[in-house]
Design a protein around this nucleic acid. Structure first.
Length: 509
RNA sequence: GGAGCCAUCGCCAAGUGGUAAGGCAGUGGUCUGCAAAACCACCAUCCCCAGUUCAAAUCUGGGUGGCUCCUCCA
């Protein structure tokens, strides 16, 4: 299959450009992963989902993707946190790494093809530092090794920063340790370890790598000196990605390293940045428990990966006015829409099963035929997933119409069209990471989640529904409506149909 | 102080030179014992001002408002 040509927004050129992989049909992609010193929060998920969507999009468009996402398991923050908790840093990092991967799986983030760790790449890191020293780009100072920013003229190109300005900015923050640097903007490639800290032998001192160098070492190890796509959060542009470029090109020469830079936008909470001081940092586990992992995934897919996104929350307060929790309005809305799609898929499956299955090949209604092609075009235009969602909305509403009001249409045509709707919705859903569950399983999980959340007594609901059915049979509609009122007070809404009464839990919107 | 991003219907959100996707909410309708769900219909000229152009939400300049980075914060 010939891959579909695509255009993507390259941060370095700051514009949408045609994507031309090094090797036709193949994509080598590297994304900055987590530093594992704490449970993953929703920002980590947001970035991981963005690049998982891009990866899936590339695969859907016909590219063979090698997806590398690193784990920073050696880092000052890890050492600090582990020391505070009296835990071994490497053990703690391994624990949070496993937790990170479990969390991301709940958002339908596929495992990376490779998940390199700093601790497993010390020789490669030392090798690249040695190359940098040999090239005159780095210098040793009291056991530490620093990158000499002044030796790399292109420094600042990615972030649009002027190196003179950076010097001014950095010089305001000089502290005692910085006297080891030639100039404040220089950054550490290797730093000496204190007793008890994780450390490795090196030509300079027993120590550990600086933060930035790991990515340069891992990309060249696993993707080669030059590769296709490098991704990460917008906040990493400076200094992290700027430093990566300086390191890799300093070691391997001009024109090497990432050929396209992709950066995902940030999550804003009610207009402000997420930060611990504002108390709006939410862990992935909490989010997935409260609204379901796929709801966050769907929410992300409803937005463009590059845009910053508004995220509406509302504190839950007890009688005394104390905050006891938080309501994720945006995610609840996304989950309701996701529920609509799953219910639609369920209805199609039921209808098809009732009709005796697939009637074989033949024409389908033209209005649903373009979903796959339209989605392909949208994804090929810088991974425009909101357009994909809009196209899926159209197919879902058509499917529902065919189920409810198939009047005047050939039965086999309707059946074939419905089968095609379901098949294409699942195909396109998978291309962006949604609708991956079986509808009964999603619907059951959602109900269980909401039943638990609102403390609904399922046995009582079933009893009341039976009572109401009896009342309706007796034409005692007054009684039936009283029962409905009682159920609605429990947040239970009934859906009457020719085959009986089902119910759903409704969140206040 | 330096760099950059953004401003589209009540809310969320695509579109970045050719005459405003989609969702939520709202209104009217079909269906229903009544509802709900589902479906159908209606629902914005794009922050302000000035330019460029046959044509601008989309380009340029100015203004206003918001956000981010320059602090190993995704």
């Amino acid at each position: 299959m010939t891959p579909t040509p695509l255009r993507l927004h390259d941060s370095l050129r700051n514009q949408k450009v045609p994507f031309e992989p090094l090797e036709p049909g193949k994509v080598g992609m590297y994304v900055c992963g987590p530093t594992t010193y704490a449970p993953a929060h929703i920002g980590h998920a947001f970035s991981a989902i963005a690049f998982d969507t891009i990866r899936r999009g590339l695969m859907f468009l016909g590219y063979q993707v090698k997806f590398v996402r690193n784990v920073t398991d050696v880092d000052d923050k890890i050492i600090k946190r582990a020391s505070e908790q009296g835990e071994d840093p490497m053990v703690m990092a391994a624990r949070f790494t496993a937790e990170y991967n479990r969390d991301m799986a709940r958002f339908n983030v596929l495992p990376a093809d490779l998940e390199p760790k700093v601790s497993g790449h010390i020789p490669q890191i030392i090798a690249i530092i040695e190359r940098l020293i040999a090239n005159g780009k780095a210098y040793e100072s009291a056991g530490d090794v620093y990158y000499a920013v002044a030796t790399f003229p292109a420094y600042g190109k990615l972030s649009g920063q002027d190196i003179a300005e950076l010097r001014d900015g950095a010089s305001k923050r000089v502290d005692a340790q910085d006297t080891r640097k030639r100039e404040p903007a220089d950054f550490a490639l290797w730093k000496a370890a204190k007793p008890g800290e994780p450390s490795w032998d090196s030509p300079w001192c027993k120590g550990r790598p600086g933060w930035h160098i790991e990515c340069s070492a891992m990309t060249v190890t696993h993707l080669g000196a030059t590769f296709d796509i490098h991704g990460g959060g917008k906040d990493l542009i400076f200094p992290h990605h700027e430093n990566e470029i300086a390191q890799s090109q300093g070691a391997d020469g001009e024109g090497t390293f990432a050929r396209y830079w992709l950066h995902n936008g940030f999550l804003n909470f009610d207009g402000v940045k997420m930060s611990k001081s504002l108390g709006n940092v939410f862990n992935c586990g909490e989010i997935a428990d409260v609204v379901g992992g796929e709801a966050l995934r769907f929410f992300c897919v409803q937005h463009h990966y590059q845009s910053s996104v508004e995220f509406e929350t509302e504190p839950i307060k007890d009688a005394a006015g104390e905050t006891t929790g938080v309501i994720f309005r945006s995610l609840e809305a996304a989950d309701r829409r996701l529920n609509y799609f799953y219910e639609t898929l369920q209805r199609i499956d039921d209808k098809v099963a009732a009709a005796g299955g697939d009637p074989g090949s033949g024409a389908v209604l033209a209005e649903i035929e373009s979903l796959v092609a339209d989605s392909r075009a949208a994804l090929a235009d810088n991974f425009n997933t909101p357009i994909v969602v809009a196209a899926m909305e159209k197919v879902a509403s058509t499917a529902n119409r065919l189920i409810d009001q198939p009047k005047g249409l050939d039965k086999l045509l309707v059946l074939r069209t419905l089968i095609r709707c379901a098949r294409d919705l699942r195909t396109i859903g998978a291309a962006v990471g949604v609708f991956t569950s079986k509808p009964p399983s999603y619907l059951a999980e959602r109900r269980a989640r909401l039943v638990k959340k609102f403390g609904i007594d399922v046995a009582a609901v079933d009893r009341l529904i039976l009572e109401r059915a009896t009342a309706r049979k007796d034409k005692d509609f007054a009684r039936a409506d009283v029962i409905r009122g009682e159920l609605e007070a429990m947040r239970v809404k009934m859906i009457d149909s020719p085959t009986g009464t089902t119910w759903r839990v409704d969140e206040p919107s």
